[in-house]
Design a protein around this nucleic acid. Structure first.
Lengths: 227, 227
DNA sequence: CTAGGGTATTTTGCATGCAAAATACAATCT
DNA sequence: AGATTGTATTTTGCATGCAAAATACCCTAG
């Protein structure tokens, strides 16, 4: 007898509240719900096609991710993008990612590293084409893979949670050609250190890379707000 | 005219779902809801005196803190204490706290440091009396104060979230007299480095301290499970 | 006595109802 | 006109209702 295949798999819908969390998070990260915008339950239930219960669960959860701010008895708003908070978040992510790099040097399989290398080249392709969106996508993928290669699930989960808040800035900020080129060079060095499994070096490179990102992001926000 | 005092303050109840989160978290951290125990909504609503809606919101939120595991269509259980996960968590907390120490050396006010010193002496008093519970309480307070002294709210929030999961182990594990004495000595060194605002040294001390705690906790769990 | 299957009960997931709080609006007064 | 107070509407927070899934139970067959 063949194994009982998970034949419900096709029909298995993920729980509605989870789906709602993801859709709402996406709306916020992509900026379709602007920072500061009020989250009206009636409007959102209509827009997402769910009832208030899963929606409210989603809103509360996103509040813990810092994407939403809860106003007691007055609902919720999309969290504003505060430069100070972004800076704090990137400092934490820097510590996490540098730990991740250290661990990854010891834990990552050669296959993990090969995959990161592949993503690196895909990213270079995007850079060559000047495709900023594509570049960001692969850039994100590389950082996530690296963090996952640490084999520390708590670390990866924590990193992802913080990351959501920073990603929002992307959709507001471009990147100067100089900074873009510099970031690519930094990634070259990061990949080389990982391939050599040089933990100390990778740790330092990641810390510097995140520092530079912090500067870029803050400057971008500054320009945006000046405009 | 005098300012309109927030006269509703006394009567202002915190939102019910928030209260529920805190109470449920406490039950889990203190071990009154044992690891692996099923969270029956009917039972808990009766026990906590709230309806299912805020309870369910609390359960979902605690799941993101790793205190609860969600079983789709089958409710939720108190997350089991897995040594591997505790180890991962402490590794992350080590990175966070060492960053916190570094930042605190630059950011903490003299008053912050004085308060940490006071807590340190309170902790010494508990150690002298052999009051383990009191010791843990002050120990926790010191670590939290240190993290808060970093002036990085995201860091503090992330740390607190991870901390909940580790605290549960406390209620299962004692501490050998040798390890206890050693921990106190480590705290002496930590305090000295903070007072001297020696960031590099504090960073290293905190990392080592967390490493030692990791070893202690894992050994305690091992003993527990062997028993 | 054990294994299997079918039904009853429980439990969960989501939707909706209801009361209190907040907001918007309008009429009145200065 | 502007401010202000009282009222209507909206919106939120929590409680409850309903259907589907899961679990427990019992009965039967081997």
């Amino acid at each position: 007898m063949g194994s009982i295949a998970p034949l419900a798999l096709a029909g298995t819908r993920r729980p509605l509240h989870e789906e709602t969390i993801n859709r709402l998070r996406d709306l916020i990260v992509r900026g379709e719900l602007a920072p500061g915008a009020r989250l009206n339950e009636r409007v959102l239930t209509a827009q997402l096609g769910v009832s208030r219960t899963p929606l409210r669960e989603a809103i509360k959860l996103l509040a813990t991710e810092g994407l939403v701010e809860l106003l007691p008895n007055r609902g919720a708003v999309v969290a504003p993008i505060e430069p100070a908070r972004i800076a704090e978040t990137l400092a934490v992510m820097g510590a996490l990612e540098s730990l991740a790099g250290e661990l990854a040097c010891a834990q990552a399989s050669d296959r993990d590293i090969a995959e990161i290398r592949a993503l690196h080249y895909e990213m270079l392709a995007m850079h060559a084409r000047g495709d900023l969106d594509g570049y960001f996508r692969y850039n994100q993928a590389i950082h996530l893979r690296l963090v996952e290669a640490s084999s520390n699930a708590v670390l990866a989960q924590t990193y992802r949670q913080l990351n959501a808040n920073v990603r929002r800035v992307r959709y507001m900020a471009n990147l100067s050609p100089e900074r873009w080129d510099a970031a690519v060079k930094e990634h070259e060095a990061i990949l080389a250190a990982l391939a050599a499994r040089d933990a100390a070096r990778l740790k330092r490179l990641l810390r510097d890379h995140l520092s530079a990102k912090l500067a870029t992001v803050l400057e971008a926000i500054g320009r945006k707000q000046a405009a």
